[in-house]
Amino acid sequence: MEKKLITILGPTASGKTALAVSLAQKLAGEIISADSRQVYRDMTIGTGKDLDDYIVNGQPIPHHLIDICDAGTKYNLFQFQHDFRTAYNDICRRNVQPILCGGTGLYIEAVLKGYNLHEVPRNEKLRLELKDKTLEQLTEILINLKRRTQSTLHNKTDLDSCQRAIRAIEIETFNLRTPASKRTFLPIQSLIFGINIDRNMRRQRITQRLKERLDNGLIEEVRSLLNRGISAEALIYYGLEYKYITEHIIGKSTLDQTFRALETAIHQFAKRQMTWFRGMERRGFKINWLDAEMPNHEKTQTIISMIEEPK
Rank of each mutant, 00 (worst) to 15 (best):
I61S: 00
I55S: 00
I91V: 05
V56M: 10
R85P: 07
A20C: 05
P98M: 09
N76V: 13
Q25R: 11
K49I: 01
P62T: 01
I45T: 10
N95Y: 14
C69H: 09
A71R: 07
N76G: 11
S36D: 15
P62A: 11
T73M: 15
A18R: 06
Y88L: 14
T44C: 05
F80A: 10
T44A: 04
N57G: 10
R93G: 10
Y40A: 07
V39T: 05
Q38C: 07
T86A: 10
R41D: 09
G58Q: 02
C92S: 07
R85C: 14
T86G: 12
D35H: 10
A34E: 08
Y40D: 14
Q59M: 08
D70T: 08
S36F: 07
T73L: 15
D83C: 13
E30L: 04
Q38N: 04
R93W: 09
R41F: 06
A18D: 12
P98R: 00
P98G: 04
I99L: 03
Q97C: 11
L100K: 09
I61G: 02
P60C: 08
L65D: 10
R37I: 14
I61Q: 05
A18Q: 05
A34D: 05
I68C: 13
G102F: 09
L27V: 02
P98T: 11
T47G: 11
V56P: 05
N57K: 15
G103F: 05
I45C: 04
L51G: 00
G48W: 02
V96G: 01
H82V: 04
A71D: 01
Y40K: 11
D35S: 09
K49W: 00
A24I: 11
L77S: 09
I61R: 03
I99S: 02
N89I: 12
K74V: 13
Q81N: 07
E30T: 07
Q25I: 00
A34N: 08
L19C: 02
N76C: 15
G58R: 04
D83E: 15
I32S: 06
A34W: 11
P60I: 02
I66A: 00
N89V: 07
I31N: 01
Y75M: 07
D53G: 02
V21P: 01
L27T: 02
C69W: 14
A18I: 02
D90K: 13
S22M: 06
I31H: 04
Y54S: 03
I31E: 03
A71W: 01
S33L: 03
I31V: 03
E30Y: 09
D83M: 14
I91N: 00
Y75D: 04
L77P: 09
A87K: 09
V21L: 03
K26H: 11
T73S: 15
H63P: 02
H64N: 10
D52W: 00
A28T: 11
G46R: 08
N76H: 11
V96T: 15
Q38P: 03
E30I: 06
G103L: 08
P98V: 03
D53S: 05
Q79W: 12
V39H: 10
I31G: 03
D42Q: 08
Q38R: 10
Q81D: 12
D52M: 01
A34P: 13
D52C: 01
A28C: 06
V56G: 03
N95F: 06
I61T: 08
D52N: 02
N57D: 14
R41S: 14
M43C: 13
R37H: 08
T47Y: 05
